[in-house]
Design a protein around this nucleic acid. Structure first.
Lengths: 224, 224
DNA sequence: CATTATAAACATACGCCGTAAGTTTTCTCC
DNA sequence: GGAGAAAACTTACGGCGTATGTTTATAATG
């Protein structure tokens, strides 16, 4: 009878959009986009599924918001820095974020409904190229090339059936054993002489391709 | 009473795996992977949904088969050709195929269950690099870099909310009008001075990045 | 403090999904 | 033409997104 606050049996915790989005990201991180259902999300939030719709228009709206949220995690390049290290740093950060939230590579229309964090990020990247001496047209080339590479790399990394070096070795050994090596000799060679070598880790390939691309962009900027 | 063949009211057409896969690809082309349901597929094939399971283990098996089918559409490089034009040609073909079947970029585990067409394709690509003078390790770099770029480009292209130049111009104009340009000045500039220029077509960016990557690979091959 | 309006929770229900299990039809081969 | 197998159909279940309607808790007003 003292405090009316704690009278009820279950003091219904109040939801809000941020809590919904954060929980959804957590769920998707753990089980992919297909593991994210409104009912399971409600469970996570101690709420019925339909209550979520007070804070989110529908599931697509939720996913758009999730995509924007993770764009906010990418380290922004600074306009004043040298373009190459600046872009390199944000590209590495971008890849880390995509690896952490691997469901994000499959979000259908990241281009259709960009949120504020996404727009801000894009603006900074474009600005970094522009201030680095790229023409508007070459900035478009550079933006497209680098981001295509990052997205694609993240996708390939995600679709690999292994993550750690140990898993990789084990899996590659199995694959190689099952492979008709006479039919696919080059593939077999690559598996045997490269993937199965100790210390192999696919993630290491990222910087190789990224630096190839960045060096190419430098040449592009200075020619024509 | 003449021909017993045409006696029945509906002469139940026989299904087979190829017909199922081809119809599934058609359905996914039209409505994306989420538009592909067993019931709709059955409808397309004049069959009940469950009948499909006589030719396919489950939906994942079907999708794996679809992925392998479209790998078969990619122009194979020839081992005897010069590596650069050979890889360039197959990369362009690859992108065309991914654009034609844009659902394919989101197939989760293309790496987990590769079919024969996929293996064959990979073997040829790897062989082309090897015969072009790339070491095993550099072949792995090259393969990863080029395919990451292609996948990523296809994904970005797919996620654009427009396809034709007219649509692009219209959409970009709307976006620019809605954009708080003072907050995103570089993005606004890119839209106004590049995307809205007549003749702009995002697909044209593909070759720019591809050739950057291929030139970079040539350098990579000849150094270290 | 009592009253009321509003926001946000809950509850129910519908049509669609993948597919397990069981049944019936059709084809193939002797 | 009859047996066995292959492939079709039928029914049903649990889970999905979410429309719709109801109840409860919070905030605003007198």
């Amino acid at each position: 009878m003292a405090a009316p606050r704690e009278a009820g049996p279950s003091p219904r915790v109040r939801l809000n959009r941020e809590r919904v989005i954060a929980a959804a990201v957590r769920l998707a991180d753990a089980g992919g986009l297909e593991g994210l259902t409104m009912r399971r999300l409600g469970e996570d939030l101690n709420v019925e599924a339909m209550s979520i719709y007070n804070h989110v228009a529908n599931k697509d709206d939720l996913i758009d918001a999730m995509a924007d949220a993770i764009f906010g995690e990418i380290a922004l390049p600074s306009h004043s820095d040298e373009w190459k290290p600046a872009i390199r740093k944000r590209s590495i950060s971008f890849r880390e974020v995509l690896a952490r939230h691997s469901w994000a590579t499959t979000v259908r229309d990241s281009g259709t409904n960009p949120g504020p964090a996404t727009l801000r990020h894009h603006d900074r990247v474009i600005g970094t190229f522009r201030n680095g001496g790229f023409s508007v047209e070459k900035t478009a080339h550079a933006f497209s090339a680098v981001d295509s590479y990052i997205y694609g790399f993240a996708m390939q990394e995600k679709s690999l059936p292994f993550t750690t070096p140990e898993e990789t070795a084990a899996m590659a050994a199995v694959m190689l054993a099952q492979l008709p090596t006479s039919e696919y000799p080059y593939l077999a060679e690559l598996l045997a002489d490269h993937v199965l070598k100790p210390g192999y880790f696919y993630g290491d390939e990222f910087l190789v391709g990224l630096d190839l691309m960045l060096d190419g962009l430098e040449t592009l900027r200075d020619t024509d």
